[in-house]
């Protein structure tokens, strides 16, 4: 066990990513503030990225993993920009960014 702990390998990184993923999930599920939800999404994307980079370091995957990681960062940036613009627009309409208060559409 100690031996295992002392040599951080693929599994260790994956465990970090798993914890990060579940924290992101937690934020997404439990927060009502839109920006908090978006931050949770960023955590999820980062955890996926850790997986990619870890696989590229420890398995045959090679640099492909890093490449995908790079693109994911780009996508995350694009998504965050659009998401925050939409949140701003929501704030202008509703004067709130609380998911519970923004609920015209129901049924």
């Amino acid at each position: 066990m100690i031996q295992w702990l002392a040599e951080p390998g693929l599994t260790h990184f994956l465990i970090v990513s798993a914890i990060l993923f579940s924290l992101g999930l937690m934020a997404v599920l439990s927060k009502r503030n839109v920006i908090m939800v978006l931050m949770g999404v960023e955590l999820i994307l980062n955890s996926a990225n850790i997986n990619m980079i870890a696989f590229s370091r420890f398995t045959d995957l090679g640099l492909d993993g890093q490449m995908i990681g790079l693109f994911i960062i780009i996508i995350a940036a694009a998504e965050a920009a659009v998401a925050l613009a939409i949140v701003l627009n929501i704030y202008n309409r509703f004067n709130s960014i609380n998911l519970d208060e923004i609920s015209l559409l129901k049924g």
């Binding site: 839109v34 659009v82 939409i86 627009n89 015209l104």
Partner: peptide
């Protein structure tokens, strides 16, 4: 309002 709201729900 409803268009804004739907777009926010969609992106989330």
């Amino acid at each position: 309002k409803r268009s804004s709201e739907s777009s926010m729900k969609y992106i989330i």
